[in-house]
Design a protein around this nucleic acid. Structure first.
Lengths: 206, 206
DNA sequence: ATTCTTCTTGAACATTGTTCATTTTCAAGC
DNA sequence: GCTTGAAAATGAACAATGTTCAAGAAGAAT
């Protein structure tokens, strides 16, 4: 049976507007940081009233969370593009790709990791799950490299290793903190993964 | 010569008030998070007007930054208390102590690492420097363990390793993100340091 | 064409950071 | 102790920004 509902004119406009609001919000976050994102700026740039933003996203956090959701989706897509031919190269590739993506979209990533909800409302579960899933992308290559290890242990190792890389990169790119030159950071991450794989017995000691 | 100026009544009150404002701001951040910190709440709890807060700290960021400054000072003091008898134990101790401190003061640490300035004003240099100094506390034990290595390389390694530990802990304690049980996190950090020291050739492969 | 539903609007409101003219407080000089 | 001048405290007013909602506009249904 055919459930394809033809889209009404109303829905078309609604969708177009929704996309435009998100595009503008993302651009502002990316260029000027989350703290510079203002409802009125978004509404004006999108050519609609502030009420429409609320009508579409419930509250302003809704806009931010939707941008964050799309950020982690884009990140995951990029990470999935890393070749899976050789597991060791794949691990290096995941770290290097994360660095690239973070460097390109630093403010968007900060929005994803640093945004806090008002009061104590919980962060949406689906976003958290997507982040964890992205961090689990080191799992398959690690399984191939450590075929005798417990699968639960590998899952934990994957999260740990990716979290460590995240820490190195997010602090390294923090222009607030004595900016590490990008080229040096790349080397730094590579060296780190290298040493850790050596410690796991995957690479030979040098 | 004796420069000890006896403190005027005026200065006494000023200092007392300053301390009280900071104490209250810290308590609010620690218990309800940075986003719940409001000038009026602080002023009321400190028994003074909002103007006095501004008079003392310039703007509201000034209050936050002062709390953050004291947080990194307290952190550094705790890290300096780690015994330096055995360098390997010292490294484990630094990681474990960071975990402890982070777990006890999660919201204060998040304020330190996640607070962004309005517009694009730069984060105060002295705070950044203090954070880097704290992260450099792994330098001395690493020098002892790798006596033949280049000192600049060790400095970088110290920052890398501490940043990695920071990433594991800050994401692990993120109750937003599928909370890792604290006991497990401790093990996780220990295992991580273990593997990395093995990769550096400091510990034997197992 | 008419009616009904839904969406849009933007002025009004609520919250919160910031300023500043006025008042108060304190210390110094007489 | 009183006077006076400087410094600080006050809080009402202002500014910036998130949020709501009654009224109107736009599209869908008949």
């Amino acid at each position: 049976m055919n459930n394809v509902q033809e889209e009404s004119l109303r829905d078309q406009k609604k969708n177009r507007r929704r996309l435009q609001i998100l595009e503008i919000a993302r651009r502002i976050i990316a260029t000027k940081g989350l703290r510079s994102l203002k409802v009125r700026d978004v509404a004006e740039a999108a050519g609609c009233s502030v009420g429409s933003v609320y009508n579409e996203f419930g509250d302003f956090d809704g806009v931010i969370l939707t941008v964050n959701r799309e950020t982690v989706q884009a990140l995951t897509a990029r990470l999935r593009g890393v070749p899976a031919d050789d597991p060791v190269r794949q691990l290096y590739g995941l770290a290097a790709t994360y660095l690239e993506f973070f460097a390109e979209h630093a403010n968007l990533l900060r929005s994803l990791f640093e945004h806090r909800m008002e009061d104590d409302r919980p962060y949406p579960d689906d976003i958290l799950q997507m982040v964890m899933d992205a961090f689990a992308l080191m799992h398959p290559p690690l399984v191939r490299l450590l075929p005798n290890a417990d699968d639960v242990k590998i899952a934990l190792l994957s999260r740990t290793l990716f979290s460590a890389v995240h820490g190195i990169i997010s602090l390294g790119l923090e222009e607030r903190m004595v900016a590490v030159p990008p080229q040096m950071l790349r080397q730094q991450v590579e060296q780190f993964v290298d040493t850790h794989l050596t410690g796991l017995g995957i690479l030979p000691l040098r």
